[in-house]
Amino acid sequence: MTTYIIRRIFQLIPVLFGVTLFVFLLMHLTPGKPAQIMAGESAPTHVVERMEQRLGLDQPYHIQYVRFVSNIAQLDFGVSMRSNLPIIDEIRPKFWVTLELAIYSTILSIFIGIIAGIVSAVRRHSKSDIIIMLVALFGLSMPNFWLGLMLMQWFAINWGWFPPTGWGTPGQVVLPVITLGTAGAAVIARMTRSSMLEVISQDYIRTARAKGVKERVIIYRHALKNALIPVVTVIGLQFGALLSGTVLTETVFAINGMGRYVIDSIIARDFPAVQATIIIISVLFVFVNLIVDISYRYLNKRIDLD
């Protein structure tokens, strides 16, 4: 197990290298001089040159990259082109908002997804199974930003149950979390159901039945624990989807998080800010996946060693 964890951590190195390289190249692959774009198209040459000097853009690429990475390692993402403030200071409060939104939505989707999946599997082919799977299919097929708009229109604007925008108060949390969590709940419900059905057909479930175990105990004690193991992987992937989904949800509900920040930065051509956000979200995602992989491995080690 320890060797596995160490190996997985070592495997992160090329990934992190690739991610930083890609994000680094973002700026340089853009048509035109980055400094010119950032300074504005009409900026005079000496302003652009001064900017290049200040940002180190006049250095050779490999030196720029090394500096880029070593700065990131110290959480120094440079200065925002818009505000002239250190990006890390701008992002810090937004990071927690986004993380909160993603975590609440993950919890919601796990909770609803697993319960719905179990009910569906246990009552296979019943009305509740069909309805749950239909709802899940809709949840999966719905653009979440549209769901957000519809929720906002009815529950906030028309009926006034919740505030339409913002983040912080309990009321403000409800609609964005539902918006973001729905698709995840749908995916987890489908996965739980199929995993559950597969486990129920296993030999050891037959053994439990032959032992005289009650059907309810078979479901919750013998089957569920096994069935949830593959669901863990899906939860990890869903967390990634949720992280990126915050971009749309935050835009819909005007939440001041990282998702909106990255959009504003793209529109303003504030490259350092774009780079910083993308790196932070990706690295977070990579580490969440690492944790998921390790826990999957841990949960699964009893199953396949053959």
Binding site: D203, T207, A210, K211, G212, V213
Partner: peptide, 25 residues
């Protein structure tokens, strides 16, 4: 009534010992 009999008065062992035990217990 069957549950009282299964594993108590009539027991069964199966062909596949590799898969007939629950891996997580």
């Amino acid at each position: 009534e069957m549950r009282k009999i299964r594993g108590n008065r009539i027991s069964m062992i199966f062909q596949e010992p590799m898969t007939s035990l629950n891996p997580v217990y």
